[in-house]
Design a binder for these strands. Structure first.
Lengths: 194, 194
DNA sequence: AAGTTTATTGACTCGTCAATCAACAAAAAA
DNA sequence: TTTTTTGTTGATTGACGAGTCAATAAACTT
């Protein structure tokens, strides 16, 4: 009973199933069959639409980055003024969604992928540039020439705090990570006035 | 021609070969045969001495952490006074050795492993505690009660900067990462005096 | 109605790999 | 010197997995 126009539906199902499966096993050691089964189709169909396992992973990575981008945009839209906007960007990186098992595994394994798969590296670079640009647009009004250095510091701190939160034992504590970021920002801004 | 007392020699060879192979492929997708071949023995012997692939990986992880620990200890021994000691600890995380392909892959894949393998998580926790304790012993004389917060910030910043250096395109720039850490430290210390 | 495109899968190929085992060799212990 | 322990590997097992393919069927085109 083949309905037409299945391609986007199947692809989306596969992408979501991929992320779930990566979260379930905690690595890229996921078979196309597992993914296809969770997405409710045969593995042959998965190959039909994506061609290879690597393409499936890259599509999943794009999806994760898209989700993150949407979250940031949403938070930014509701924020007024540089201060609130900066707050929104920082909080977005530590939202509950980013601490879900699937998201954590996705990020960690994508970092590994980025070592060797050029497209994965490119996608990661896109994300970092976007974060940096978001930070800069808030920081420039407040920090002027020092905005760049502060943005770089915040960016690295975000990644490091995220890594530590997700790998420590016990539940992650997003708010305390955000507090650390705000403290960093606070002393950087105080620095501003000599 | 079996010489006796081979066990430690074989194990060491396997551990080193494991790290090289992980660096070569950039992930844990390394076969026991590849490792054994590089270490100059049959895969059966690798299983004989380690029992399973996972045990080989954990031994490799212990080795990496041991190397790092030795590097820090060495740098600390040559440093006089809290300031110099702090400098030594920070620089040790961004030494050329830590930017070698094998070390990078090892750290990234161990982070992934730590999600699901308790022993890997434990080892990572040991490393983090040691780093924290090293930082604290330097910071307490300079920062008193604020030492803990500063140590946590430095720890996260180290991980985040490392991640960004190794995943960016182009060669990593250790000194600039260290400079960022020192800048963070500088403004934290300035904060000390209101 | 005939032909083309899209959807779909079961079966299969070809390869790989972790782990085991039997067997052999040499040193040490008895 | 017999026995035990230690070192070592080739061959094998048993399983799994990525990707292909032929075949089936529904929809759309002409």
């Amino acid at each position: 009973m083949p309905k037409l126009g299945m391609e986007p539906i199947r692809k989306e199902a596969l992408v979501k199933a991929t992320i779930v499966e990566i979260g379930r096993v905690g690595s890229l050691d996921v078979t196309v069959s597992q993914i296809a089964k969770r997405a409710g189709m045969s593995s042959a169909l998965a190959h039909h639409y994506f061609g290879s396992k690597e393409e499936i992973f890259l599509a999943a990575m794009r999806h994760i980055l898209t989700l993150y981008g949407a979250e940031v945009r949403g938070a930014l839209a509701a924020a007024d003024g540089p201060d609130a906007r900066l707050n929104a960007v920082l909080r977005a990186s530590f939202s509950p969604g980013n601490f879900r098992r699937e998201a954590v595994s996705a990020w960690l394994t994508f970092w590994v992928l980025a070592q060797t798969v050029p497209e994965a590296r490119r996608l990661l670079a896109v994300y970092q540039r976007r974060l940096r640009s978001n930070l800069l647009s808030c920081l420039r009004p407040m920090a002027g020439a020092r905005a760049e250095a502060i943005a770089d510091g915040l960016g690295a701190l975000i990644d490091g705090l995220y890594l530590r939160e997700v790998l420590k034992s016990g539940p992650p504590d997003g708010p305390s990570a955000v507090a650390m970021l705000l403290e960093y920002l606070r002393i950087q801004m105080k620095e501003q006035t000599r």
